[in-house]
């Protein structure tokens, strides 16, 4: 058993290194090209040169946010797939991403973004929290997993249709474009203000999700058996839904809706860490952080005049990879 734990940490280490590596590369590349040596010296010994400003004020917050958002999406996907015992679950199924998106689009529609920079993330956060409240009100305390999924999908569809409605009534093409671009996700021009806003929610969400591993493992045997193993399912559901809502809601609030990370990462983690749901939480989070940092790097490549959006890249990397994993593991999942 202790050997299993050693293997677990030995496999997490390369993932950590990947995240660090991607993070460093993320500091290296941007509109201004900086030699790696300069980046190094700026990291170790920052002064007030323009390079330091670029590294510390522009690229660093963007990188930190990317890691936090990616980790939130991966972790949430793993926790939800474990709770719902459904490998197709992602943070979208409880409606929190769509509702945060609705909040953001509302903020753009009402024109608050022009007067107050943080209006958009605040509206998005409010959307996420309202949808979580709705989910808990509509699915009662002892709701089955199926009820939770169905209510979540209902809320999600409602938020998506309302988002379409708001876009339909967009006052002008520019505001419509803002909405669409925002929904595709981006980490451009994010600052420490965004981190200060989203960070506390994200970290509180992680904290709640840190306590769900054992319950998820027990759920492998079904809800009845998990309860006879001493797992308080009501508490487990509460922790997961709140944890996901906080971390994903805050993530969407600062960088838009980003698909596929939450869906794909748990599958990738299972390939290397097995199917025990508690064992794939951390690897999914690390993998998500890596994937999002990588995707953000790709958005900075000068491929076309229209800048690539983050959500598009993650879907492009994620979807084929997802298909590959599914085809590889279809025997075991039967």
């Amino acid at each position: 058993m202790t050997a299993t734990r050693k293997i677990y940490w030995a496999r997490c280490l390369p993932l950590c290194l990947l995240v660090f590596g991607a993070g460093f590369f993320s500091l290296l590349f941007g509109t201004v090209s900086l030699p790696p040596i300069e980046v190094f010296s700026s990291l170790i010994n920052p002064q007030d040169t323009p390079t330091d400003t670029i590294i510390w004020e522009i690229r660093m917050p963007r990188m930190i946010l990317g890691v936090m958002v990616g980790a939130s999406l991966g972790l949430s996907g793993a926790a939800l797939q474990g709770l719902l015992r459904n490998p197709l679950a992602d943070p979208g199924v409880i409606g929190v991403s769509a509702s945060a998106g609705l909040g953001a689009v509302m903020a753009i529609y009402l024109g608050f973004t022009a007067t107050f920079a943080l209006a958009l993330p605040l509206f998005a956060l409010a959307g996420a929290l309202i949808s979580t409240f709705l989910l808990f009100t509509l699915a009662n305390r002892d709701a089955s997993v199926l009820t939770l999924i169905l209510v979540g999908i209902g809320i999600s569809s409602l938020a998506v249709s309302m988002t379409s409605l708001v876009m339909n009534f967009a006052p002008n093409p520019f505001s419509l474009q803002d909405m669409i671009l925002w929904l595709l996700g981006s980490l451009d021009n994010r600052s420490y203000a965004d981190i200060r806003l989203a960070g506390p929610f994200i970290i509180l969400g992680w904290f709640l999700l840190a306590f769900v591993g054992r319950g998820l493992t027990a759920l492998t045997l079904g809800e009845d058996t998990a309860r006879t193993l001493g797992i308080d399912l009501r508490r487990l559901r509460l922790l997961i839904i709140l944890g996901v809502s906080l971390s994903v809601g805050a993530s969407v609030a600062v960088c838009g809706t980003i698909g596929f990370v939450g869906l794909v990462m748990p599958h990738m983690a299972r390939r290397f860490f097995g199917h025990d749901p508690s064992q794939i939480l951390l690897p999914s989070a690390l993998g998500g952080a890596f994937l999002l940092t990588l995707a953000d790097l790709i958005t900075r490549l000068p491929i076309s005049d229209n800048q690539l959006r983050l959500g598009v890249i993650t879907a492009f990397i994620g979807a084929p990879f997802f298909l590959y994993i599914v085809v590889k593991t279809r025997e075991a999942m039967r």
């Binding site: 027990a218 492998t220 045997l221 058996t225 006879t228 193993l229 025990d276």
Partner: peptide, 26 residues
């Protein structure tokens, strides 16, 4: 009280020994 449910479900393709070890959770 240990409980062996009727027709018990196994949701994830876990290794048998780890599955049996779930009984140690309490």
């Amino acid at each position: 009280i240990a409980y062996a449910a009727q027709g018990g479900t196994i949701h994830w393709p876990m290794i048998v020994e780890r599955l049996i070890a779930l009984g140690r959770i309490p």
